[in-house]
Amino acid sequence: MRVEIWSDIACPWCYVGKARFEKALAAFPHRDRVEVVHRSFELDPGRAKSDAGPVIPMLAQKYGISEAQAQAAEDNVGAQAAAEGLEYRTRGRDHGNTFDMHRLLHFAEEQGRQDELLQLLYRANFAEERSVFTEGDERLVELAVEAGLDADAAREVLADEDAYADEVRADEREAAQLGATGVPFFVLDRTYGVSGAQPAEVFTQALTQAWGERSPLTLVDQADADVCGPDGCAVPQQG
């Protein structure tokens, strides 16, 4: 079974939702037969790469609320993150463009290190004091190396603005086609969708239902026929 997760590094509920999904997956009896693929979704695709700023004023302006209300909302997310065993800085974080991070995640997918890099990006953005938005490409390279990627290869990806850009845009177009208007957005075998950082029990239910409704292979002709198998190929008999 294949589970695709559309998310953004700037999305706190994606950070929390990933932890809740992984809790459900860890207890799922068929977890070893579930492939998880992370897809790109930018919450603020029009934001310039150089435009980074504090989270609280951004939230207040975006939702038309006071900064005190925005801070209360951050405190709530922090409490829910803590309940999942996640570190979360409710003060002093910033916000910015995530396109380069998504490009790097597609490179990491090719190297089999996508989940490792995604988790490090989340940790860096939500739990650490250093910024992933204002320190330049070398900060992302550091995280790529920590995830097991080659530093020079990561620098080359980041230096080439076209590298993996089409893959990011393709993910975003596909999200729109599937009806995703926000993230996290989970798609199970292209049959079931789960929107938001749902409780682990909801993901358990979705995994169980999707697995149970997978269609077994139907053979259209049960008659004996020549085949090749582990022991070799059938040898035609002389008539």
Rank of each mutant, 00 (worst) to 15 (best):
D152V: 13
P57S: 11
E135R: 14
A170V: 10
R139W: 01
Q61T: 14
L158K: 07
T90Q: 08
A82F: 01
A72R: 15
L140Y: 05
G46Y: 05
M101A: 11
E138H: 05
Y122M: 02
F126W: 13
M58T: 15
S50W: 02
Q119C: 02
A48N: 01
G96N: 07
E128K: 10
D152G: 09
L118H: 01
A108V: 07
G85P: 02
A73C: 00
A147N: 05
F133L: 06
M58P: 00
R123E: 15
R89I: 02
P57Q: 12
Q119K: 13
R130L: 05
V141L: 10
F107G: 03
L121P: 01
A82G: 03
V141D: 08
P54R: 06
H95P: 00
A151T: 09
Y164T: 04
S50Q: 11
A165F: 06
E172K: 03
D150F: 12
E156A: 15
A154W: 13
E142Y: 02
Y164H: 13
E84R: 01
D162I: 00
G85I: 03
D115C: 00
Y164C: 05
I56S: 09
G92K: 06
E128A: 09
A70P: 04
L59S: 02
R103D: 10
A73H: 11
V55N: 04
Q119D: 13
L104E: 10
E87D: 14
A151L: 10
N97C: 04
V141N: 09
G53R: 14
D152Y: 04
D44F: 06
R47T: 04
L118K: 13
M58R: 13
A68H: 14
F133D: 08
